[in-house]
Amino acid sequence: MEPTDIDLVTLAKAAQDERAFATLVRRHQARLRAFLTRLCGEASLADDIAQEAFLKAHAGLSGFKGGGSFRSWLYAIAYREFLQDARKAKAAARLEDALKDEAQTSNSDMLHAGMSLDLRRALGELDEMERASILLCDAAGFSHTEAASALSAPLGSIKTYVARAREKMRAKLSAEPSPDAACQQTAKGTHYAV
């Protein structure tokens, strides 16, 4: 039977067991980085934030009291790191640039990305708390309580953020014609004309 996160944290704390912390890193790194990638819109920045979060989690492991889940504690550290970075470097502007860059990728990439690009655009238009809430609850599978703990927000606010984010994304995705679709149509038209 696989040890739980709490077992591993206890081992890492009590016996200074590096292997226990390594297992926690391997267990959570991919999902944490996926969350941060969608949150900040840039994979390399997301990796930097994730790395910093893990280093801080390792240094402050004795501060984890086990009241909530380990992952919500870890994501809380990562979210604080993200906010710190966002304040420093105006992540919103960077997100816009990243989306522009992605929009300029080749047609085949865009076809492959398909709906995902629209999704990213719609996500990019949400504010930070809405984006983080919907990513944690709808994409990463957090409960509202875990998300509230990770984002240091009241439970009721998280529910509101998620509902509002879904509504905004639904409106965005169903209202605007996709730039991808427009591009594909143009490509098809050109093809037929030739």
Partner: peptide, 24 residues
């Protein structure tokens, strides 16, 4: 929307499971 987000998230996660991030 939740399904789309989840699919996108799972795809991102899969791509990050086998790289060298954890080792580094």
């Amino acid at each position: 929307i939740a399904d789309l987000l989840k699919d996108d998230f799972d795809e991102l996660t899969r791509a990050r499971e086998c790289d060298r991030f954890a080792e580094r």
